[in-house]
Amino acid sequence: MIQTNTAIAVKGLKKSYKNLNVLKDIDFTVQKGSIFALLGSNGAGKTTTVKILTTLLLPDKGSPEICGFDVIRQPDQVREKISLTGQSTAVDPVLTGRENLRMIGKLRHLPDANRQADELLEQVQLLDAADQKVATYSGGMQRRLDLAMGLIGGPSVIFLDEPTTGLDPQSRKALWQIIKDLADSGITVFLTTQYLEEADQLADHIAILNDGEIIAEGTAAELKKLLPHGHIELKFSDEKELQLARNLLIQYNISLSKENPTMTITTDGSIQQMTAILSQLDHADITVTEFSQKKPTLEDVFLAMIDENHGEENALC
């Protein structure tokens, strides 16, 4: 049974293209009014999942439900509830921003299509450019219009497939704010991304998709606990200092590079541990000439998760 607070329910979802097994057996649920991020690198199967959920593609197995409607058997009802802002921008470059929004409003048979168009233009900060041809818009502006076109008619669930890929940092931040505001207004947001930071910033719940399987799932905080330890890199004035530091920090997991001379320390990623190391060196009068912290990347998470998966498989043998 689907609970009433579930917006999207996916169970045992499978899809392959010819002999390429893209989605192996996917399960997840998305709560109403939350932001759910499907995180995965290129080719992981994100777009395939989005296409199935938005009625564009039939799965081989599993019938996902959206707002209680079956995606395969009730596509028309599902389409009434959702909107899609796909991976490639779906705006009409020949029309103006305002005309694009009005067109979608009229296709949805809204009696107040024009008013909604004006409101959305304001919401995505495009009022000034509203009557210019979309072909003249920057990438960030096109993406904001694209998002607004998905909002006209007030859908319950919106799908955003890599909404910020290819945008500059400033445009990305602007789009993040709009997405956060949406979730605050009660809309359920399903987004896909390749960036850990984006999922971290936006999502209430994150699922990591790798090679067609969900290898980890949880809140950002829960996932971070699964991250491999962070690394810090310290550079010293000469090899002697490096050796002194090595002897002082004997309790840590350290690798040395004598020519540089630098050392890399594996930490638990906490700031406390980092400052403890630096103050220990400071008290011993050892000068650190350069300091850098290596944040774990999405790839690190993948590697760690994949290692873990293999570990389990090996344990069975």
Binding site: T55, I104, R108, M149
Partner: peptide, 13 residues
């Protein structure tokens, strides 16, 4: 060849 066809097809039209 652009994304617009997916937008139309995911709408109730």
């Amino acid at each position: 060849t652009s994304g617009i066809i997916d937008r139309f097809h995911s709408m109730p039209i």
